[in-house]
Design a protein around this nucleic acid. Structure first.
Lengths: 189, 189
DNA sequence: GATATATTTAACCAGTGGTCAATAAAAGGA
DNA sequence: TCCTTTTATTGACCACTGGTTAAATATATC
């Protein structure tokens, strides 16, 4: 019985979130239990509840930053000095790269069906999409419709979703991702 | 104790499969239990096990035909007398319609990450994709690459996946689906 | 030493897939 | 018609998982 560990090995929110992240990547959100997360950390499951009110709150803490990460990716690309066409390509591959690099994040952000979890995310998805859409739209000038931008998003989403399911990293499909980006570019130019 | 139901109707595999289908559409594979299915039917869960060895077998019985259903959809479109371009459009919207009409099927066919479930499907996904790819390829003549066909598939997949998540029927997004199809057509013509 | 803090442990509760003896209804013969 | 056999259904039961909570207790802080 060791009802409290020494300070150096005390559990933190960050530790829990890191472990949770890893497990989600590996097994998917649905198949990770609080007990598993605790076991991974070498703590009892009860300890998690000291740091997070419940499972949903833990998930929300995780997902909260994921959208701003993606926003940052988009911002950084938009800042670059580059031809519009190249920039578009970068946005497309950048989106895919984000999705496949942070698969568990992506899953939670865009793939989870669970109502309970999704109710935690309010406007983040819309906000991030707005940023994406504005960027794409501004780089295409007038030969593209709002509809088209949405189609592009869905098409990228399809790419990420498929390869998420088969758990490969971005590097494994870099060539395919670029081809996909080119394919989409062809539709709008 | 009423160890057997009076008159009424006896349970059949079809009844079970119908109820299961509905529940899967609604809640997804993981969140439907044998007990829920039984309850929906007004029988005890034990009765299900008289008709199906276990949950997996029930799912497989369900999914088994889904691929051939999609194959049939593709075949029927290919049989039609139509301009290639229109046929392509029909294939695209037909795929989406299938995905959104049989969301639970689609989910199992193309979206489930669960190893246990996926091990049930052997070559069906590949076979169905082959049929899709051959059809599309033959309708495009030479101005399209194998890569492009794959991109089309992923793009349609993205559409279905997204709207599956938000549980809407095909009718609710028919206009969007057609726009998406047109978008994809533009990329290859 | 007292108090706040962090952790474990055990337990609760609801739910799961799955098994099976008991049993009533239906079917088939005589 | 009665009797047997087959068939389909039930509900108790098992072993398990998962989220959550509360009491107990060891450490840290003052």
């Amino acid at each position: 019985m060791t009802p409290r560990k020494t300070v150096q090995q005390e559990l933190t929110k960050e530790m829990i979130m890191d472990a949770a992240r890893d497990l989600f990547s590996e097994k998917g959100y649905q198949h990770v239990s609080m007990r598993q997360i605790a076991k991974e950390l070498g703590y009892s499951h009860g300890a998690l509840y000291y740091h997070f009110k419940n499972k949903a709150e833990l998930f929300y803490a995780l997902v909260e930053n994921h959208f701003s990460m993606l926003n940052t990716v988009l911002d950084q690309i938009m800042k670059k000095e580059m031809e519009p066409r190249e920039k578009l390509r970068e946005i497309f591959t950048g989106f895919i790269q984000f999705g496949l690099t942070y698969q568990s994040h992506y899953e939670i952000m865009f793939l989870i069906k669970d109502e309970e979890v999704r109710n935690f995310m309010n406007e983040e998805p819309n906000h991030t999409y707005e940023k994406f859409a504005k960027s794409v739209y501004s780089l295409c000038e007038k030969n593209v419709s709002i509809q088209d931008v949405w189609s592009i998003f869905l098409s990228l989403h399809g790419f990420v979703t498929h390869y998420c399911r088969h758990v490969v990293g971005y590097e494994d499909v870099k060539g395919l991702a670029e081809a996909h980006a080119n394919f989409l570019l062809r539709a709008i130019l």
